[in-house]
Structure formats: C-alpha cells, structure tokens
Write a protein that binds this DNA or RNA. Structure first.
Lengths: 378, 378
DNA sequence: CTCACTTCCTTCGATATCGAAGATAAGCCG
DNA sequence: CGGCTTATCTTCGATATCGAAGGAAGTGAG
C-alpha cells in the first residue's frame, strides 16, 4: 500500500523530531520545537490517533514527574531506498527513523540503461515489500542513489561518465509512473554525506570524502546537503602539483583522481608486478606491510590532503570524514591529516576532526532514508 | 536616542520584506511571506501605527485594483556602520533599508589598539548622529568591519596579522558598554560579500573575491553568509603551482598572496623599475598598456583563477564577483574567467557568472547594514 | 457603455498556538 | 515521614493566523 504521510504543519515538525531520535517525550518536543507544551500535547494526540506515534513506558525523572515516552509507531510506514553502482545495486527497506528492516545487494548493470535498471529496482522493492512488510504498513517514499551528477532542479542525471543512456534521463518521473509517493533522486556521494551526518551529532558543516575506485565528496552546510548545481563537492578533477604529468580519463592533465583514486593505485600496483582486482584488496596489502602499496596509499593521502587544505581553508568544516573502500587503510587517513594540518590556517583547523567515516557501508542508504523522510514531511 | 526595534513575530518578517525592497504592498507581502492576506493587513496596521511603515501613493494595477504602496517610514530608524582599515576608517549612517544617509572616511590607525580605535569610531558615530539625524529618529544598531578573522561564536578577533593588541579582544562587548543595541562585528571580506549579495538578486550562492593589497573572499551559501570558524573564504594562503619558490609573509612557500596580491605586484613592479605607491595605481598602468603591469596582472588573475577552479568545482556558486582595488583591471577578470572555464567541470560553470563586483567601494558598509537589519529583527 | 473577470484589501468565524494555572507524580532535604 | 520543589502534562481563556466571503476599484471584451 502506498500512501503519503498524512501530516501537516506542526505535526510534521514533531514527527520529524521523534523519527530522528532527537525527542522521546512531549517535554522534549516542547523544548526542541519551540511550541508551547499545550500545543505539543494536542498535536501529539493527533499523531497517536493517526497511528504514526505510540507511547511506550516512562523515561527517567529529571527531578520531577517521569515523562511518558514516545516512539515511532510500527505502522508509521517504510521507505524503499537503493544505491546504484556500475555492476550492482544495494537496496532495502527502512522504517521512518532510517533503521534498516532489510538490506540486500543484487547484480545490476548500469550500462543496461535507465529504464531497465530502474524497473528492475522497482521490482525488487515490490518483492521486498511483499516479503517483509505487513499489508497495513504503508510505503511512504522511494529513494535512489545515482553514481553521477543529478541536477537538483530537474532531478535529471547530467553528463555522467560511463553511463550510456542516462544523460538527461528523468529518473524521478520514471519512478513516479509507478509510485504516487515522494521520490528522491540523488548523487551517491551526496547520499553518503547525508548518511554520515547522522553519525556526527551537533556538527553542522561536514565534508564526506569517498576514497574508492573514484574520488568523490559530499558537502553539508548548516546541517543541510549542499548540491550546488548537482556537481558540488567534486574534487576528482582538481589539478594537483606533480613533477611528471599524467593525463586523466577526462582529458586534462594531473587530475587528483589520476594520482590518488583506487583505480590509479591499482594500475600503479599492476605496473609494479602486484596485480590487484578490487580496490578493497589494496587495504589488505597495506595491512600486510607491502611497501609499494603503503607508499602509494600514503602518497594518495598526501595528494587528497593537499586538495582538502584549500577546501578546509575556504569552508571551515567541523568534520572531514573519509569513507570508501580505501578509507580502512590507516596511512591514508594519517597522511590526509598531516597534509591538512601542515598547510591550513590554525583557525580553519581549530576543532576540526579528520577521521574515518562512521556510517559504514550503508551510509548512502541511510542518507537516502534521512533525505526521504524530509521529503515526505515537506 | 537608542532604541531596539519594537517588533515581534510576523511584524519583523513583514518589516524585513519592505526594508529590503522585496515588497511594496500588502499583496506583495502576502505573496512573499506566506501569511494570509487578512493577517498581513492586521500586522501592517500595527507597523503603520508604530511609525515603522508609511503608506505612499498607489502602485500599478495588475489587472485589478491598484495596490496601496508601503515604504519604510523616515522615523523607522538608522544604523551606524564602520569599515576599519589599517590606516583609515570608512563610516556612516544608513536607514533601515541600507540606503546611505551619510558616509565619510577618516584617518585612523588600527595599530593604536582596539579601545582607542573603537572609542574614536563611536565618537564619530555620535557626531554624525547629532549632525544628520533628527532627535525623534532612533539609532537601531551598530556595525563594525574588522580587517581580520572574527570568531562568530565569541565575536572576538582571532590572531589577526599586523593588528597588535586586537587578538581575542571582545569588540562587541566593548561597544555594548556604550550602546544598548544590537551590535554586529564582522570580518571585512564577509561584509563585502554581504553587500555584494544585494546586487545579485535571485542568486543564493556567491563567492566575493577581494583583490586588493591582500586577497580575501567572502562566501554566501543559500543566501546566508558562511562564516565557518571565522576564517571561511580565506584563499590567500593556498599553495599555488610555480616553477620557482617564493616564501610568503606567513612563512609557507608559494602562497597565493605571495604571487597575486596587490602588495606582491607592487613589489614586482618596483623591481622592474616602475615604482608604485598604491595598488590602485596598478590599474592606471594597465590602462596605459604598460606591458610589465599588464603581464603581472594577467598572471595574478590566472593564479587566482586556478585557485578558484578548485572552489567552483567544490561549491558550484552562482556568482564569482571580484572586487577590491585591482578589480578594475580588466585583464584580471578575463584571466580569472579563462582559468575557471578551462579547468572547471561543465556542470559547475553552467550559468556561472564571473564578473566585477557591483556594490562599489561601500560594499562592506552596505553589507554591514544588511546584516545589522537582520540582527535587529531577530 | 455595460458586464464579467481580476486584483487588492477588509471583515468575520474557524482553527492553531500561546501562556497561565492546575493536577499529578517524582525527588530531595530536614 | 512530611513538606517543599521540580518536572511532566492537561485545561482553558487569550491571541495570532487561516480561509472564505465580500466590498471596492481596476481592465478588457462585446
């Protein structure tokens, strides 16, 4: 069953606070929402009656009466989210708070084109719903992550590399023919940033770097995802300083990704007689103290760090989180940190954290859940 | 007479829309504010009664009845703003819409220290008020621009260069001993960005570069000034690619400002036997087609542009506005453009405007007025 | 010239929210 | 153990805002 969230005005604001885990009682809601306690009481009553919230037990006293705890109702609804890669898709169902109900990975070739790929994803959603969700629990929204830029105004994919047929394809419209629900279409690095943000409470400005086969970055400003024109955060084609000159796949010389991406490291290792089939294997080599691997990863971290220094000076983020399959290599993080600390202004790095990403491999799906909840409540 | 603006809730929202020139009638206010026409009518009546708004004539019909035009009342109040330089201060009085009533420049040595400098500015404010403002018109706020980083949480100056005695000085607290009013303390590049934003309607993401004796940049994200930790937008110490190596005043090699700042250009011209005393004179030399000057300015533009390409890819702004005393040199702008267009992603530069700043020499004061109005209405 | 439609602004009853007061149940101190 | 303070949540009258309807004054077509 598909059904949009039946809330309006202050109800949505309150539901959001409970769904995101920020509030657990009426008193919490009054403190966080700015509404008077009487207004909160009335609106919560409506959400309880609508089956969106439920009461469950009592909280701890803060010196007065114990609060009655509120939680998202199990019948509040689910969100269907997918994160598309070149050769596979990771997809699943989340409850409105973003907690996974089921997540799975399936083979899927993005080169098959958008219609076939999106229909296969929708079929998978329907199968998961039938298998895992009781009939009275409604589907409230659909979210998809795309490995290319997405124009935030038109929600169309924009000149993606290695994705034939996807340019200018209206992903949201296509999915809307099948679901009359809020639909999210977003770049995967942006989803990853949205997911990572949930792991850094009280931080409003983050950069989430994806160090994988490619290099990407998502940006969160004042707690909100910054999309720009759909290409915001792109650092892969920044020109780095180099004694030699390497032509990037994009045609320009000396792009960051020509030196520091997982693909570039794999090529360099193959040339050194160390064949690697997946970027994740590079981490294993580093852990085994293979000198060539460690040196390459360290060099990649230094280069990424040099690019990040420009951005950290400019943006003054609270956090630089590094994810992606290379991020488990500790020399990558330490050399990024060294480069950032060496060249950044002291004020720009005051209280800055450069750390491995916390959200794990499903950051993009969790990010999709968070953004979709927001879309559903607006 | 000092008096805070006596508005609350929706009154402030409506006053802001009239003061910023976005609305001129009740119908405009209803469209822009989201309030019902009946609510707008009631609140406007209160603002008229409070002497903050006035009615004046009729507007043009849009097919139905002509609207009654609203404007800021002359008795609504004034704002006192100042922009501090190393050797002078530019200060004046603005009305609540930001229109200058009087602006003047006075000699002032920042090296005299904060107390003496700020007291002198306050004395100047008081003199301007006595001379130019009728007694019933209240002062509603004080704004000051500082040529160094300002911590947005503490409103203290942070490790400014060449400003002895100013580090960690609580500028706002000092001024508050004299004025019980909203007080703004902000970095001058940020004020310039706030002022420039008003000249680019419907643009929400801007970078405002100041190419003067030094190099600075202000950043506006989603229509709001981005301060970061107080150092956001700083591009002067980004390391640029170079065949040689020049040590910057900060101690690091190859900072942007060691190559591309007005001070650096002046030094290079002196070495070429062309003595220059003010960065503004470089523009004259370029206009006279002195080859050394044009070459230096073009090279500076290219370097600034190279740094900007990283930031444009990352941030995807709508506008890059270039101000400061060097910005009148056309080769500077054209070589910035060339560098940006050459290396940026097509999506990042789609609809981007790289242009001379429009706000003129008082951008910082106008920016102070805009931010101060916001402070007064919050 | 008249009539129908549009736009602006006001009036009024309905609805949402505020703020004060009160009920209930905690914790803490003497 | 009792009294006082604190915290949570509810009740109720006051206030802000909404939404519908209406009055006034425009415009344009027939």
């Amino acid at each position: 069953m598909n059904q949009r969230l039946p809330v309006q005005g202050a109800q949505g604001d309150l539901l959001r606070l409970v769904a995101t885990g920020k509030a657990e009682s009426r008193a919490d809601l009054a403190r966080l929402s700015g509404l008077a306690a009487s207004s909160v009481s009335l609106r919560v009553e409506e959400l309880l009656d609508a089956g969106l919230l439920a009461e469950e037990g009592s909280g701890t006293s803060r010196g007065g009466r114990r609060p009655r705890l509120l939680r998202l109702s199990e019948t509040a609804g689910v969100l269907a989210v997918a994160d598309l890669g070149a050769h596979h898709v990771r997809l699943g169902l989340l409850d409105l708070s973003g907690a996974p109900l089921v997540i799975e990975e399936r083979p899927c070739e993005i080169a098959d084109g958008p219609r076939a790929t999106l229909d296969r994803i929708a079929d998978a959603f329907d199968a998961l719903l039938a298998e895992h969700v009781p009939a009275p629990v409604p589907l409230r929204g659909i979210g998809t992550g795309i490995p290319g830029p997405v124009d935030p105004l038109t929600l169309r994919v924009v000149t993606p590399s290695r994705m034939p047929g996807w340019n200018d394809f209206p992903v949201a419209e296509h999915l809307a023919t099948r679901y009359d629900l809020p639909i999210l279409v977003e770049n995967d690095a942006n989803l990853m940033a949205a997911g990572e943000t949930r792991c850094w409470p009280d931080r409003r400005n983050l950069m989430v770097v994806k160090a994988g086969t490619g290099i990407g970055c998502g940006v969160v400003v004042n707690g909100r995802l910054h999309r720009g024109r759909g290409a915001a955060g792109d650092i892969s084609h920044v020109r780095v300083r180099s004694d030699s000159s390497v032509i990037c796949a994009c045609g320009h010389p000396d792009c960051l990704e020509a030196y520091a991406s997982g693909a570039a490291l794999m090529a360099a290792l193959s040339e050194a007689g160390i064949p690697v089939t997946r970027t994740g294997d590079i981490v294993g080599l580093v852990n085994d103290a293979i000198p060539e691997a460690t040196s390459l990863v360290r060099n990649a971290g230094r280069r990424i760090g040099e690019v990040l220094t420009v951005l950290v000076n400019f943006f003054n983020p609270d956090v630089v989180a590094v994810g992606g399959s290379l991020s488990a290599a500790e020399p990558l993080i330490t050399s990024i940190r060294a480069a950032v600390w060496e060249r950044c202004l002291p004020l720009a790095t005051r209280d800055l954290e450069v750390a491995p990403a916390r959200a794990g491999r499903d950051a993009a799906l969790l990010g999709a859940g968070a953004l979709l909840l927001e879309a559903a409540l607006t």
